[in-house]
Amino acid sequence: MTKAGQAASRGTSKVSFARRFANWRLHHRLARRDTLGRMGRHWVSTLLTVLVMGVVLSLPAALSMGVLTLDAALAEVDRGDSITVMTHDSVSLAQASKLSEELASLALVESVSLVSKEQALTELSQWLGLSPEVLASLGNPLPHSISLRLTSTQPEALQAVTDQLANNPFVADVLLDMEWLTRLQSIALFGERLLWAFVAIALLACLLIIGNTIRLAVENRRQEVLVTKLVGANNAYVIRPFLYTGFAYGAAGGLVALLIAYSVKYWLGGPIEALANSYQAPNFALRFPIPLALGLLLTAVVLGIVGAWVSARRQLKLIEPR
């Protein structure tokens, strides 16, 4: 018997791996062709589904752009000194100056500025409208003070530096403006959570839209699915075209969402730039970085495939033998 004859007589269950792989690729090619042809024939409903997905996905995209922009704005605003250190009365100016140098070398500290007790008295007298001599004659009760600006505004970082300072023998008191920082953190956290809530809602909506679309597609093709199964197709073969449909919907919907997001960015870009210039904050602009765009596209594709898979599986379960 020839090799080909032997292969044929062994039947379909024991064909070579190469043959099976070629076959698998053929099935994929056919599924892709089938999907594209079908979407082209029903282009109105395809277009509508893609647009709905795109609009829904553009909501989290636009919102994340808003939050990223807000973060940037907060970073611009966040210029205040975070910690003020007061020295003991007995500490001399030279000692205070040495302390400020020490503090400047700490990892978390970005910059320091030393205000001597004489400078502080001058400032106070100006503020009170009295001559410094008069105040000085009463004895200067003010300490030397060192203002620190930290590299981080995280409350944890502030606490760490504060603890370190409290143990220093020169230091009488440490003042830190925790309250407004906490508020700022809360606002940022609120914005972030709001973003995630919207993202979750929009993603759920996409999953439902694709799931429902595929469910309708499977129901419309119920007869075909049934016949295909009866002539020996496994579930993978039957599901494949639906997965490609989900992939196509996801990718096209994601691209529409990106188009909307970039249009919004372009449209708002002018006013934002004018605003930034008026505040002399040239770095302040709408942010929609490439990784975010790619992430959005990837998410849309994954949603499309998952929605199609879940929906098609469920429909196939209904025609399983019982």
Binding site: T12, N23, V231, G232
Partner: peptide
Amino acid sequence: ALPLLICG
């Protein structure tokens, strides 16, 4: 051709 395609 459908069943033949499926059978590989």
